[in-house]
């Protein structure tokens, strides 16, 4: 099968959907002429024109508000927030307006909007351009949150997001844009709320999101060298969350580590660990472990920055400790 990059997969998903549905528009900073700073949307403006691929002024609250209004009145906008860190600027448009309009209008209005943004540290982009803020969004009822972990996932989840009638926020790890994976040429969708078991195992469950899925897979392979059978699960969407698959896996393995690049405090790792404790408590043979980003602003120093993010080695070591009964 052909291999394409994560960025190209996102591009393909958006162009395919735009060809199918004229109501889809893209708007954001540098999305048209520049094709975004990561070049993910290159070529879109040439194909669909500046009416459908709109470069906006540098005002995230402004153009997100426009997108919410456009979505309510019939378009299907894809909003590009250049860095996940800028989500703080659009909290009202996203959390108070987009998330609640369907509910507060008694179901009469809907906001079929996709908000693409990114996450992920270790790019030497410092504290205001390196955050992974997906758990903030997942906290709000009415918003769906997808976290693609490969080019294949990115395309399938993006197409599903565009067709969803609810506001969906997609977090793309900015370090994965050039990672290649097999992506079929024929159309496919990936359903929200269906976790993916990448690597079946029996001894310990590694639940990982986004780029941490790669790290968990590396760890699963090094653990296999020590005859430890790790099951790697990618939830794909954290809202909705496929609790059943996670719980059933932990019931089988009795051990779990949750790995996510968001801050560990009050984050995805906390939420999933709590659900396991609620629903699989009597099956646990060791405390559920969490590996999240260190609870500090992301340092600019490369040496320090690398220390803040979970690694395959850390996952491996923690799994061994859990299974040896050292925790």
């Amino acid at each position: 099968m052909r291999e394409i990059t994560f960025g190209a997969a996102v591009n393909e998903a958006i162009s395919e959907e735009m060809r199918l549905d004229n109501s889809i528009i893209v708007l954001g900073e540098d999305v048209a002429e520049a094709g975004t700073p990561f070049k993910v949307l290159s070529g879109l403006v040439e194909e669909f024109g500046t009416d459908r691929v709109v470069d906006t002024p540098i005002s995230e609250p402004g153009f997100t508000g426009i997108a919410v209004g456009a979505a309510i009145t019939g378009l299907r906008p894809i909003v590009d927030i250049m860095f996940g860190d800028f989500l703080f600027l659009i909290m009202d448009q996203l959390c108070n307006q987009a998330a609640k309009t369907h509910y507060m209008s008694g179901g009469k209005l809907s906001v079929p909007m996709v908000l693409r943004t990114n996450m992920g540290a270790t790019r030497r982009s410092a504290a205001q351009h390196s955050q992974s803020l997906h758990s903030l969004v997942a906290h709000i009822p009415g918003l769906k949150v997808a976290m693609p972990s490969s080019a294949y996932e990115a395309k399938g989840l993006m197409k599903t997001a565009i067709r969803d009638n609810n506001p969906v926020v997609i977090f793309e790890d900015k370090l994965m844009y050039n990672d290649k994976a097999e992506v079929p040429e024929e159309e496919y969708l990936i359903n929200f709320g269906e976790a993916n078991i990448l690597h079946p195992g029996t001894d310990i469950t590694l639940i990982a999101t986004s780029s941490m899925v790669q790290q968990a897979e590396i760890a699963a392979n090094t653990l296999a060298d020590q005859n430890i059978s790790a099951e790697v699960i990618d939830p794909r969407t954290i809202s909705p969350l496929d609790e059943n698959t996670l719980i059933n896996s932990v019931k089988k393995t009795s051990h779990a580590i949750v790995i996510d690049e968001g801050h560990q405090n009050f984050g995805v790792t906390a939420e999933i660990a709590a659900r396991i404790s609620e629903k699989a408590f009597y099956y646990l043979d060791a405390p559920v472990q969490r590996l999240g980003a260190m609870d500090v602003p992301v340092p600019f120093s490369p040496v320090l920055e690398d220390l803040t993010v979970p690694t395959a080695q850390q996952i491996h070591d923690r799994a061994v400790m859990v299974l040896k009964g050292e925790i």
Binding site: T122, R123, R124, L175, M176, Y177, N178, D179, S211, Q214, Q215, I218, T222, D306, L307, T311, A312, Q313, Q314, H316
Partner: peptide
């Protein structure tokens, strides 16, 4: 350099990175 690709590869095979640490 801080080119994405090289950087990512390093992070991808993180066992090396960790031993550097």
């Amino acid at each position: 350099t801080i080119k994405n690709n090289e950087e990512k590869e390093q992070i991808g095979s993180n066992i090396e990175t960790a031993s550097n640490k």
